[in-house]
């Protein structure tokens, strides 16, 4: 009897493992994804670069101006899960991504999978980048190739053992990786749709401004979208940027766009913390794009306490 039970348990265990294995196989590009890639236009890719904020994580900490285009990585992201050391994404063929194909790049940005078939950690905000268009990704990739190569070998992340099991990230993705828009019913107005794309896609605003489910380790909590929460890095809290009185309720769209351009709030408080790097990226966008972001932030549901 006991033997039979043991055998059954063993079988179940093997089946569970097999299912886990099967469920967490890293994805490759889907037909649809592949078909949306185009011949990249490097000049058009620069705006995508600033919207996506790559330099805020892959350049040196607090890098300013042109130094933000030196993407040698090595920037340490100190999170509650451990320390992530960002990789080199400069066009250096040995230590960077100079030898990658556009397909490799797109699979990393959309599906969070490396050319070798490893799941990336979601500290790389692909859960937002998954919403980027094939055209933007192609242009971005062409632009990255024009930047100065930096020779710097990647360093391992400093993580506790359970988090080193990459297949586990496959489960996280099954539960939380979703390329559909978050705000499904904000209408058809072009400005709002552009704002939604920039905020939910390349701008990855939700990665900081939306609280996470499952004790902070899950996905972005869409029921409290942009409602603020604990900082993903370091001390303090991230403010609510929905139109609630505790968020941006008192700000006009013009004031929000002005903040993204100049870094000053309507009360002439100045931007601080990790938002400084984001704001300086936003300052490089067109006026129309900043206005679109502001319009979206005024149009989404207010999130209170």
């Amino acid at each position: 009897m006991i033997r039979k039970l043991l055998a059954a348990a063993l079988l179940l265990g093997v089946a569970a493992l097999a299912i886990f294995w099967w469920l967490t196989i890293p994805a490759t590009l889907s037909e649809q994804q592949r078909a949306s890639l185009v011949e990249g236009d490097a000049a058009a890719g620069e705006a995508v670069f600033w919207a996506g904020g790559c330099g805020s994580c892959h350049a040196e900490k607090s890098a300013k101006g042109d130094a933000k285009k030196l993407l040698g990585g090595g920037h340490r992201l100190d999170t509650p899960a451990g320390v992530f050391v960002t990789p080199n994404i400069s066009p250096d063929p040995e230590t960077g991504i100079g030898s990658w194909s556009l397909e490799d790049f797109a699979n990393a940005m959309w599906n969070g999978v490396s050319p070798g078939g490893r799941h990336y950690y979601p500290s790389f905000p692909y859960a937002s980048y998954i919403r980027m268009t094939g055209e933007d990704l192609s242009n971005l990739f062409a632009y990255l190739k024009t930047l100065e190569p930096v020779s710097r070998a990647n360093e391992p992340h400093e993580l506790p053992l359970p988090l080193k099991l990459h297949r586990g990230i496959g489960l996280w993705k099954l539960a939380f990786l979703d390329g559909a828009p978050v705000m499904t019913d904000i209408g058809e107005e072009e400005t709002l749709l552009r704002g939604r794309y920039l905020v939910e896609g390349p701008g990855h605003c939700g990665e900081c401004h939306t609280p996470r489910t499952v004790f902070g380790f899950g996905g972005m909590d869409k029921s409290r979208w942009l409602g603020g929460g604990a900082a993903p890095e370091g001390d303090g809290k991230i403010p609510n940027i929905t139109p609630h009185e505790k968020g941006l309720g008192g700000w006009s769209a013009g004031e929000i766009a002005g903040y993204l351009e100049s870094g000053f709030t309507p009360e002439f408080d100045s931007v601080g913390g990790s938002m400084v790097s984001v704001q300086e990226n936003m300052a490089k966008l067109t006026k129309e794009d900043r206005a679109a972001i502001a319009a979206y932030l005024k149009a989404i549901p207010a999130v209170g306490d």
Binding site: S62, A231, G234, D235, G236, K237, I238, P239, G263, F264, S270, V271, G272, G273, V276, S277, Q279
Partner: peptide, 16 residues
């Protein structure tokens, strides 16, 4: 003058 606001707030301020 204004550049000071951002650089000090970036390093030494945190919202609560």
């Amino acid at each position: 003058v204004g550049g000071n606001c951002k650089s000090c707030h970036e390093a030494f301020r945190v919202k609560n």
